[in-house]
Amino acid sequence: MNAIECENLGRSFGRLPAVQGLNLSVPEGSFFALLGPNGAGKSTLLKVLLNLLRPSTGSARVLGRQSTSLSAGDFQRIGYVADGQDLPDWMTTSQLLSFCRPLYPSWDQSLATRLAAQFDLPVDRALSKLSRGMRMKAALLSCLAYRPELMVLDEPFGGLDPLVRDDFIQGLLEIPGDDRPRTFIVSSHDIDEVERLADDVGFLAAGNLLVHEPADALRRRFRSIEIVGPSTIKPPSPPTEGWTEVKQASENVVRFVCTSFGGEEEGRIRARFPGATISIQAMTLREIFLVLARAERGKGAL
């Protein structure tokens, strides 16, 4: 069962497409990271999913319901925290929780109390007087306390300093399994931070979903490879399928990124460059994202 399913989903603002022809499914129980640069369409996609914006084309289903027919009742199962979201800033965290509590039959006050302590939230201070990180935590707490089936975090790390960011992520990681929402969707342009959290990863650039697959598979698939030959070596021409960013670093050094690294790939490379020293490096999601983004800019196929 998928928590999210999109079919040819698009959203334009006037003539400007923010999201186009997007097909996506996020299985229940996964932690899906939606990555992409600023302006890629991440927030727009999430807002369309939550019926904050209407889709221009296609459709989406969220927890089995058409996104356009999500109603107030459905938000008892969905949590949403976004950078820049309006909060009743005049309330204290405690007042915010008291206000939210009657709205959710599944509200767990003991969980709220526990998370408030874990997040180290000053519950009697007005939200307007809290730091940005603390405000995000308060908003997160007001969602986690009713154990939503789907938790959507839109750029939750925006504007947070590294310490607070780490603190926030640690907070998310430390939520006990039973208390965690079944499905998480986090959008961010800050890939390093999401790497620790994500099971599944989607790369969005200019409104197009470039890649969507499990993070581990992606990490396994991408390798940065350096070949140092005993004498002059040349990269293959035409380029081998699955190789990108092929560069002649010096006469006897060739570097490239392999996007389809597997068990047999290393053997194939060694056969192609006999006697060369081959260095194969795993890549971080950030490095993979940069490769994808550059390829998208050059419209290269991966």
Partner: peptide, 9 residues
């Protein structure tokens, strides 16, 4: 699209 109530029941 940023109103608090919009994503609450």
């Amino acid at each position: 699209d940023r109103a608090f109530w919009r994503t609450r029941p």
